[in-house]
């Protein structure tokens, strides 16, 4: 059952529908077409699954990349007097190049390049991996700057106190700086998560059937844009509100442990 006409739908519709104004009837019909006919809600559900997978994967990858880059940058910046070792200089230059290129080009373009030039995935799994890698690399650049500014916001005296007790650089970071920096990093990182979730809507350009792509598909099946796209917006909105609430709870918990 791919297509149902308005009149045939009205016949099968429950009696209370008949008393409604014409416009409302038409809207209900479009809702019916968008979600019920041909079990199209399953398309949304499938799309949601892809959106979740790509978001979580890209988030994990972005945080890993971001942490590594932030540590390189912070370590490099910690050499104020002495010359940093050669390898660190190379790594730092690479990091700066990475940040410049990734933050200086649109995510859409990055997806097109990764999807059609570098990876050219053939299977759905391939597309998912390609999407995760592209978004992860993109997000990593932003996470790196968030983490770096968080680490650098901690008073220099904390590092000195740690070092003077005999901790090495890594131990000082791990036991003293990072636990304090997390509180500064978390709100900005939450923002980045929300941005990332919404940015996954771009993966449709590499033929990934995420929720945005599915809404487009439904639009082309039903010749009706209003309901699929408004529903799409509503779904993203609900997800983001949920995520915001979750982050707020997390932050409140952290603040409780603050002294």
């Amino acid at each position: 059952m791919r297509f149902v006409s308005f009149s045939s739908w009205l016949e099968t519709a429950p009696s209370w529908v008949h008393g409604l104004p014409k416009g409302t009837q038409s809207f209900l019909f479009q809702l019916f077409q968008t979600f019920v006919v041909g079990d199209r809600w399953k398309l949304f559900a499938d799309g949601l699954r892809i959106t979740f997978i790509v978001t979580l994967g890209a988030l994990a990858l972005g945080i890993i990349i971001g942490l590594i880059l932030a540590i390189i940058r912070t370590l490099y910046c910690s050499y104020t007097v002495n010359k940093p070792p050669f390898i660190l200089k190379v790594l730092n230059s690479f990091t700066e190049l990475y940040l410049t290129v990734i933050r200086g080009t649109p995510m859409m373009v990055q997806l097109l390049i990764m999807g059609f030039v570098i990876f050219v995935p053939k299977t759905e799994t391939g597309c998912i991996v390609c999407g995760i890698i592209t978004l992860g690399i993109n997000s990593g650049a932003y996470v790196a700057e968030i983490v770096r500014s968080g680490l650098m916001s901690i008073d220099k005296g904390q590092t000195e106190a740690g070092r003077s007790l005999g901790f090495n650089y890594g131990q000082t970071m791990f036991y003293i700086i990072i636990p304090q920096a997390v509180k500064n990093i978390l709100p900005a990182l939450g923002n980045e998560m929300i941005t990332l979730l919404k940015d996954t809507s771009l993966v449709s350009v590499i033929a990934l059937r995420d929720i945005t792509k599915q809404a487009q598909n439904i639009q082309s099946l039903t010749y009706n844009a209003l309901v699929p796209y408004l529903s799409l917006a509503a779904i993203y909105l609900v997800l983001v509100i949920g995520l915001t609430k979750l982050l707020a709870v997390f932050e409140r918990r952290l603040r409780k442990s603050e002294h």
Partner: peptide
Amino acid sequence: INVHRQNMGMVFQHFNLFPH
């Protein structure tokens, strides 16, 4: 240097206790 710093205690003007 980290080993030697263990044998040298340092007290700072601004205390630098770990607030967390």
